[in-house]
Design a protein around this nucleic acid. Structure first.
Lengths: 127, 127
DNA sequence: GTAAGTACGCACAAATTTGTTAGTGGTGTC
DNA sequence: GACACCACTAACAAATTTGTGCGTACTTAC
């Protein structure tokens, strides 16, 4: 019920959806599920993020009310990020998807082998 | 349990995650929840997709064993797309997230207004 | 006979995302 | 006293994603 217009181009949900399902957004939510983290803790925990992308992702999520940013105004900068109640709910959904993928990865990649005999990397080959 | 390495840069789950959470991937899964669709049915149903992107998205999902592509080899081309059992599970997770967003959108955008008084569009402003 | 629809592939351009480098202003470590 | 660390930002370059026609081989509708 009530679902219907995500498929419509103008649906405002799409913006939030993009933030939550963005490459790093997903991982930030998962990382924060285990509690409050500082910026560089997140950076170390999430393999492959650049500072720039992490900062940007955190800003989007903060603006969406998904995470809470707390600046201690200390002199060696100290900022902490935590999931808001809203964020906890969102993180649950996102983590559920990620967990499902991890569990079912064998099934997925197994199929890939039979489907794509000569596939290299991302490129799908079609005869 | 078992979750742990999505946060690692080399985790193979990330690839699948990208496909499922891609801009159009999410919408394709949701659209296919209501049953089999032809290419141009999907194109009409999902507002804003280009033919190119739809085709590409479908190929990724097919390679991942999420959807099934059936080509009738007919002369006005006729191809049908359906969720595989694997795809049905994935679509559930994705749709759960999308539904959650739609339901909680008021809470989210409400916060945005109070957080970003002078924000225009996507750009977060910080004084 | 003219136009529209089908399920795409191709080439090219535009937009968006991502990375890289450098810098800030101090403080604690050697 | 030289250095790394903290939480970023700005400027610029590179990579990736996305869009925009255009073509196809044929059929049905007007």
């Amino acid at each position: 019920m009530a679902r219907g217009d995500v498929l419509a181009a103008a649906c405002p949900s799409r913006v939030v959806l993009r933030h939550l399902t963005s490459r790093w957004g997903v991982l930030v939510l998962i990382a924060l599920q285990s509690g409050t983290h500082r910026f560089s803790d997140l950076r170390r925990k999430i393999g492959g993020v650049s500072e720039r992308m992490l900062a940007q992702t955190l800003q989007f999520l903060e603006a969406d009310g998904i995470i809470d940013r707390r600046d201690y105004q200390a002199v060696p900068p100290r900022v902490e990020y935590t999931l808001t109640p809203l964020g906890v709910e969102a993180a649950d959904k996102v983590a559920a998807l990620a967990d499902w993928i991890e569990v079912n990865l064998p099934r997925i990649t197994g199929l890939q082998e039979t489907n794509l005999p000569a596939a290299k990397g991302e490129v799908a080959v079609r005869s």
